[in-house]
C-alpha cells in the first residue's frame, strides 16, 4: 500500500514556483528520504502534505484517501522550524500535544513519562521548556511528535543541531518505530544519515524531482560509471573531458565519474599506460556525490 502518494503537485507563491509537477510515493513501513538543497521546496511540499498549505494543482493521497483533517491524528510532524511553548513545563508540553492529537490526559502522561525516560529527559520533567538546551528541546519536540503513535512520521531535518550521541539516540528510536510498522518520511541534506536509514529517496531541486526510487536503484544507476583510483605519477588523462566527466581528488585517492558512453576498461587501459596503479575499483557512489553531481547539473535530469 502506498502510504503517501503525491501526484503532479504544483505550488507557487507569486512568481516563485516552489514546487513544480512533483510526483512521488512512499510505501508502507518504508523510511523515505526527501532530499534537496536549501530552498528546493521540501518544506513547502511537506506543508502541503500537512494541509497547512493548499496545492495549486495536483493531488495528495494519504492512506489511499484524499487529504482531510481526520487523518492529521495519524501523522506525526516535526517541522523544520522547531517550536514549543517556552513557559510551559516539559510534562505539560508533552501531554498537551498528546491531548491535541486525541489521546486522553492520563494516557498521555503515562506515555510521556516512558518517552521522557527513553530519551533521557526524565529529570527535566517538571522544568520549564525555556530552561532546556537547544538539543534537549529538540528531543522534547521529537517526543511530542511521536507520542500519539502516528502511522506516518514526517520529520523535517530531524538531526540538525544534535550532537552525535543524541543523533544516535534519535536514530535508534526511529529504527524502533520502523520496526513497529511506522512509515517515516524525513527531509535532510545530510546524506550520511539518508544512506544509513533510507530505503527510498526523492531528490528535488528547484521544486522538481530530479531523482527518485529505491536507494539501491539510484546508486546502481550512478555506480556504472564511477571509479576509485589510487596511483603514483602524473595522471594527465584526468583532464581528458572525452573520457573523464568529472573527478574529485581526495589526496589518498581520486574518484572519477566517466564521461558518457565510455567504459571503465578504457580508463584502466589509459591508467596502466601512464601511471603506477595501486588500486582500481568500481565504486558505488556515495549519496553525497550523487547529490552534489545532480544538483550541480542545475536540475538537469540524469536519465
Amino acid at each position: 500500500m502506498d502510504i503517501l502518494k503525491v501526484d503532479q503537485v504544483s505550488k507557487s507563491f507569486g512568481d516563485v514556483h516552489a514546487v513544480k509537477d512533483l510526483s512521488f510515493f512512499v510505501k508502507e513501513r518504508q523510511v523515505f528520504g526527501l532530499l534537496g538543497p536549501n530552498g528546493a521546496g521540501k518544506t513547502t511540499m511537506i506543508r502541503m502534505i500537512m494541509q497547512i498549505l493548499l496545492p495549486d494543482r495536483g493531488s495528495i493521497h494519504i492512506f489511499e484517501k484524499p487529504l482531510s483533517p481526520d487523518i492529521l491524528d495519524e501523522i506525526g510532524y516535526l517541522p523544520e522550524e522547531r517550536g514549543l511553548f517556552p513557559k510551559m513545563k516539559v510534562i505539560d508540553t508533552v501531554t498537551f500535544f498528546g491531548e491535541i492529537h486525541g489521546i486522553g490526559h492520563s494516557e498521555s502522561v503515562r506515555r510521556a513519562d516512558t518517552l521522557l525516560k527513553r530519551l533521557e529527559l526524565y529529570e527535566w520533567r517538571d522544568k520549564k521548556v525555556e530552561e532546556l538546551s537547544r538539543g534537549m528541546q529538540q528531543k522534547l519536540q521529537f517526543i511530542c511528535t511521536i507520542l500519539h503513535k502516528p502511522k506516518l512520521l514526517i520529520l523535517d531535518e530531524p538531526f540538525t543541531g544534535l550532537d552525535p550521541v543524541n543523533t544516535n539516540l534519535l536514530k535508534d528510536v526511529m529504527v524502533e518505530l520502523k520496526g513497529e510498522g511506522t512509515t517515516i518520511i524525513f527531509s535532510t541534506h545530510l546524506m550520511e544519515q539518508v544512506e544509513k536509514l533510507c530505503e527510498s529517496i526523492c531528490l528535488i531541486n528547484k521544486g522538481e524531482a530530479i531523482l527518485s526510487g529505491s536507494l539501491r536503484e539510484v546508486k546502481s544507476k550512478f555506480g556504472k560509471n564511477r571509479v576509485r583510483l589510487s596511483y603514483e605519477g602524473k595522471a594527465d588523462f584526468l583532464k581528458d573531458k572525452t573520457l573523464v566527466d568529472q573527478y574529485d581528488d581526495y589526496g589518498q585517492y581520486v574518484e572519477i565519474g566517466l564521461a558518457k558512453n565510455r567504459t571503465s576498461k578504457e580508463l584502466l587501459q589509459k591508467a596502466i599506460d601512464t601511471v603506477t596503479l595501486h588500486q582500481f575499483e568500481m565504486a558505488e557512489p556515495s549519496l553525497n556525490e550523487i547529490f552534489i553531481t545532480v544538483v550541480k547539473a542545475e536540475g538537469g535530469s540524469l536519465e
Partner: peptide, 11 residues
Amino acid sequence: SRVIEVVLSSV
C-alpha cells in the same frame, strides 16, 4: 516561538 506550525499539524 515558532510553535504555530507544530500545533497546526493537528488542528
